[in-house]
């Protein structure tokens, strides 16, 4: 455990909490992609299946439970809450799950470190996490106006990924024999997806005006 990794995990948690509190406080989920949230829930469930038989640290176990719990709450709000579900932007959130899930499933069967069910599910979760933000980015692109909290959510998520990269660099430099190609490449792709958004977010912030994505 190093400071970069810790900062990454905290930023990840913060991003989820920003979203959850926004929904809770405004009773609205306008601008939020349910597809992305459900994909993240699938990522957490397939990755943290080992919660019940592998114990690494209390830190890891607590985070796993919290990530699954908070993301479930977001999905619950968007699907079930009587007021919130009415604000869901169904017509613009049309990204097809299958376009992301199917290639990740095939890839995890082809490229994995060990050929057993749980390792393949874990690998699937790594690939899926890399692209799970796409429906959210497409939704932002379609609706153009990004409200502050949704913008902050995507920004914090991107920052979390950036800190994970620093964490890998640090581990590579300090832990003899440490390498994790599969996670590195997926992580780089994932972080790359945020770069365009980051650019506009920082521009808007510098000019202290509302974030608006270009056509």
């Amino acid at each position: 455990m190093n400071l970069f990794r810790f900062a990454g995990d905290i930023l990840h948690l913060l991003s989820i909490l920003v979203l959850l509190l926004k929904i809770h406080a405004t009773k609205s989920c306008a601008g939020i992609s349910l597809k992305t949230q459900e994909l993240y829930l699938a990522v957490f469930i397939t990755r943290y299946l080992d919660l019940f038989w592998n114990f690494h640290s209390l830190y890891n176990s607590v985070f796993k439970v919290v990530y699954i719990g908070t993301t479930s709450m977001i999905v619950w709000y968007m699907r079930r809450h009587r007021n919130v579900k009415l604000t869901y932007d169904r017509d613009h959130d049309t990204f097809r799950y299958l376009f992301l899930v199917a290639p990740c499933a095939v890839l995890s069967l082809l490229i994995n470190a060990r050929y057993n069910l749980f390792e393949i599910l874990w690998t699937f979760s790594i690939y899926l996490e890399a692209v799970a933000i796409l429906p959210q980015l497409v939704l932002l692109q379609r609706t153009k106006n990004v409200d502050n909290l949704t913008g902050n959510y995507v920004f914090l998520l991107g920052l979390y990924r950036a800190f994970y990269i620093l964490n890998w660099v640090y581990r590579f430099a300090t832990e003899p024999g440490y390498s994790a190609w599969l996670v590195w490449i997926s992580g780089l792709i994932q972080t790359g997806l945020y770069l365009d958004f980051f650019y506009y977010y920082v521009q808007a912030w510098k000019q202290s005006k509302k974030l608006q994505l270009p056509s």
């Binding site: 990794r5 995990d9 990840h12 990755r47 080992d50 592998n54 690494h56 890891n60 985070f63 796993k64 990530y67 060990r114 390792e119 874990w122 994970y164 964490n167 996670v183």
Partner: peptide, 10 residues
């Protein structure tokens, strides 16, 4: 080795 199969990152 069992220990190797535990992924230590989140």
């Amino acid at each position: 080795k069992m220990g190797d199969e535990i992924h230590d990152e989140l």
